[in-house]
Design a protein around this nucleic acid. Sequence first.
DNA 1: CTTTCTACG
DNA 2: CGTAGAAAG
Lengths: 295, 295
Amino acid sequence: MADETNPFGEFPHRVVDPKADGVTRVASVNVNGIRAAHRKGMGEWLAARDVDVLALQEVRADEAILTKLITEMTASTGVDWHIHDEEAAAKGRAGVAIVSRSAPTEVRAGIGEAHLEDQGRWVEADFTLGDGSTLTVASVYVHSGEVGSIKQDHKMRFLEYMRHHLPELARTRDHVLVVGDLNVGHTELDIKNWKGNVKNSGFLPEERAFFDGYFGEEGGYVDVARSLAGPVEGPYTWWSYRGKAFDNDTGWRIDYQMATPALAALAHNATVDRALDYSLRWSDHAPLVVDYRLP
Amino acid sequence: MADETNPFGEFPHRVVDPKADGVTRVASVNVNGIRAAHRKGMGEWLAARDVDVLALQEVRADEAILTKLITEMTASTGVDWHIHDEEAAAKGRAGVAIVSRSAPTEVRAGIGEAHLEDQGRWVEADFTLGDGSTLTVASVYVHSGEVGSIKQDHKMRFLEYMRHHLPELARTRDHVLVVGDLNVGHTELDIKNWKGNVKNSGFLPEERAFFDGYFGEEGGYVDVARSLAGPVEGPYTWWSYRGKAFDNDTGWRIDYQMATPALAALAHNATVDRALDYSLRWSDHAPLVVDYRLP
DNA sequence: CTTTCTACG
DNA sequence: CGTAGAAAG
């Protein structure tokens, strides 16, 4: 409940977890339609959370709508935010974006060589850090998949592409942070009911094997939230709208922040904004928020 | 506003216009989707209005859903209502129904010879009256039409069919009551902005000419609401959802009760339940309610 | 269960 | 402006 003495109203976590000076806060969130998210209270979360880089997935709106809503939701900050998105060819589907307080030096949309279609699933932006090094941030939305459907083939192709592209990014850039909805739980700690899902898209052995690769020596990335949380169940980032999945915390940890090791070492304070305290829920995913003490 | 001393709560008209003994109340209403109408308060209207025959148009639901919702909305009456509908071939489109307190002796769906398609636009039911005569009630939903579109041709074909069928019904039955959304304003009194609509479907000269025929000597029907209201503007039965049409009463009188003369002579108390008093609006049409002192 | 688009009104 | 279906998640 809101605390009358709390200037952040219904967001007490903002008080118990203030952003420290010199910290860059990166939030990744699948908004499941930014229009609906905005209607249901995303703006209050954004105003209270004080993020510096906001990576969005499933925007499901064109650039004009995205810009309008982000501008409205960030009006209280008094600064002009930089908004870069990749829309899907099909209206109202997928769509990723990177919204940032500072201007990127370069933005690349689409998934490069596997650029078979305008899918609204990958956008990356380069930022120059204080020490002159470069940070590349990608907002990613992997297909949800369905066993026995062509959608699963597309998902596997995308995961396969990432197996090549992630190491290449890590090799050619200073710091890399790939965040988003990867639609796969890596380990048994990542899905509440993992036994019931070993044959479902999202926890298939062949999907999970890709993640072993992303996070292993060859992949060169750290699963930041897992690294900071340790080997505990969850914290989940998605709950089905069906039944009482959210109330029972029958969730999946399928949203990630994947950082190159030197960057991951600067991460602290990873939080999934499940919003239990204030009972707000404006998406089926919750934001994954991480603070980085960047150079 | 609701009057605390009014047992009908937010339906004061129920008090100022009680149904007299020995009266049969017939209501016609285009519900624009009975699911939405139910959700928005149709049940309260129905419970308060004490109708005997309810003719519905644009049900936009299959029989199972219609039956469930009508049963729920009439539960307080403690009687089993008789429900007969004609669905459109296309799910979620059109659909007419006759809901009655007493059982019809026969029900006919579809528009007979011009029965080119399952359109969900015509259903008629026969009832036996106290003196042994027969009353046929039809619930009709005429196409909305659009000048220059094939939809206008379908509308004109339907109106043409009615030009033949209405006199035939009148000739072969004792009493006939054809009610519903005819989607045409007959005279300049029937549309607030008639001058601006002489070239629009719903007030075209060729459409209005059909109504001259329906209500003339050859047609053999009386426009009950107009007959009781006299030559005044309206009362309108439909207002666009766009702009402030409802608030400004920029409406159309396109819902009718058409009765054979002997039946029309028994009609009194025609009311359009515009619901201004209690600010409820659960369809873009308002119910047209008429009391008949049947033999 | 929820979102968006679409067709129809 | 609003309804319901469809496709997707």
